[in-house]
Computed example of a mutant assay.
Amino acid sequence: MSILVDGSTRVVVQGITGRAGSFHARACLDYGTRIVAGVTPGRGGQKLDDRVPIFDSVAEAKQLTGCNASLIFVPASGAVDAMLETAASGIELIVCITEGIPILDMVRARRSLEGTSTRLIGPNCPGVITPGQCKIGIMPGYIHKPGPVGIVSRSGTLTYEAVWQLSQTGIGQSSCVGIGGDPVHGLGLREVIEMFDRDPATEAILVIGEIGGCEEQEAAVFWETSSRKPTAVFLAGVTAPPGRRMGHAGAVITGTSGTVAAKIEAFQAVGIPIILSPADIGKGMAKALAAAVT
Rank of each mutant, 00 (worst) to 15 (best):
G258C: 12
D182H: 05
I3M: 13
Q63N: 05
S112T: 13
D199L: 07
I275A: 05
Y160T: 04
R198E: 14
S277E: 14
E161H: 02
R154V: 06
D56R: 02
C125A: 13
T118S: 14
I35G: 09
G212W: 00
Q46D: 09
L189T: 10
V207G: 01
Q268H: 09
A269Y: 03
E114L: 14
R111W: 09
G15Q: 08
A249V: 11
L104R: 10
G115A: 08
V152E: 04
V184Y: 12
T157V: 11
P146I: 02
I253V: 15
Q133C: 13
A292R: 00
Q217H: 05
P146L: 09
T116V: 07
P131R: 01
S167V: 06
P53E: 08
G188K: 15
I136C: 07
A266N: 01
R198F: 01
S277C: 09
V149P: 00
S57A: 09
P53H: 14
E191T: 03
G209N: 00
I101P: 04
M139K: 10
G21T: 08
G243K: 10
V293Q: 15
S89R: 04
A59K: 14
P140E: 08
P200F: 02
F267C: 03
A27Q: 15
P102F: 07
G237H: 12
G237S: 00
V36E: 05
K47T: 11
G150F: 12
V177H: 09
T294A: 13
G181N: 08
L104S: 03
V270P: 07
T65K: 02
R51F: 00
L4V: 13
A220D: 11
C214R: 15
G284A: 14
R228I: 05
L93E: 04
E194Q: 15
S175P: 06
D49K: 12
T86H: 06
S226M: 03
P278D: 10
G44M: 10
L276S: 14
G115I: 08
W223G: 01
A59L: 12
Q173N: 12
R43M: 01
A79V: 13
F234Q: 14
C28T: 00
L166N: 08
N124T: 02
Y142G: 07
G180H: 06
G243F: 10
K263D: 10
S22F: 02
S257R: 13
N68G: 05
A109V: 03
P131F: 15
D50H: 08
E114W: 04
V80P: 06
Q173Y: 08
G243C: 04
E265V: 04
V95Y: 03
G132E: 12
A291I: 02
I138Y: 05
G38R: 03
R26Q: 15
A82V: 09
G212E: 06
G209E: 03
S77R: 05
R110T: 09
G258V: 07
Q133H: 15
S277W: 00
